Simulated assay, not measured.
Amino acid sequence: MTATATDESTVGTLVRSWIDGWIVSRGTSDPADRPWGWTIDAGHVNHVSRHVLPAPAETDVRALVAATSAPGTWLKLFADDDTVRPWVGEGWHFDKPGYLMTVPLAAERPAIPAGYTLTSWTRGGVTRILVRTAEGHFAARGQVAATGPTAVADQIETAPGHQRRGLGSLVMRTLQNTAYEAGATTGVLVGTPEGRSLYTSLGWRTHSPMASLYFKPTPA
Rank of each mutant, 00 (worst) to 15 (best):
A146C: 11
A107V: 13
G98L: 01
V52Y: 04
E157P: 03
A179Q: 02
E90D: 14
M210L: 04
G168S: 11
G27M: 10
G166I: 06
W92N: 08
D41R: 05
P193L: 10
G183A: 09
W87V: 00
A106Y: 11
R62I: 07
V171N: 04
A140Y: 11
P54H: 07
E90L: 05
Q155T: 10
D81A: 02
D82H: 11
T68V: 08
H137C: 07
P209D: 04
R196L: 14
P217A: 09
I19G: 11
W87G: 00
G136K: 08
D82Q: 14
D41G: 01
P209M: 00
V61L: 12
F78K: 09
A211V: 00
V45T: 13
A134E: 15
P149T: 13
E58W: 11
L14N: 11
A134T: 13
V24M: 01
W22L: 00
T200H: 15
A220L: 08
A55Q: 14
A55Y: 03
D7R: 14
K76Y: 06
E108N: 05
S120G: 05
G148C: 12
V144T: 13
E8S: 14
T192Y: 01
Q163G: 14
P113F: 05
Y199F: 15
A32W: 09
T150Q: 14
L189N: 00
A151R: 00
T174R: 09
S29L: 01
E90G: 06
G168M: 03
R205P: 08
G183L: 09
R16T: 03
T185S: 15
T83P: 00
S25M: 01
P219M: 11
S17P: 02
A107I: 11
G98E: 06
H162W: 07
D95M: 04
Q163E: 15
T59M: 11
L53G: 12
D82Y: 08
P217F: 09
G183I: 09
R34V: 01
G142C: 03
A211S: 15
I112V: 15
A111K: 04
G43W: 10
D60M: 14
E8R: 14
A67P: 04
V88F: 06
Q163M: 12
L53D: 13
P35H: 05
S169I: 06
L75C: 08
V152S: 15
A159K: 11
R50T: 12
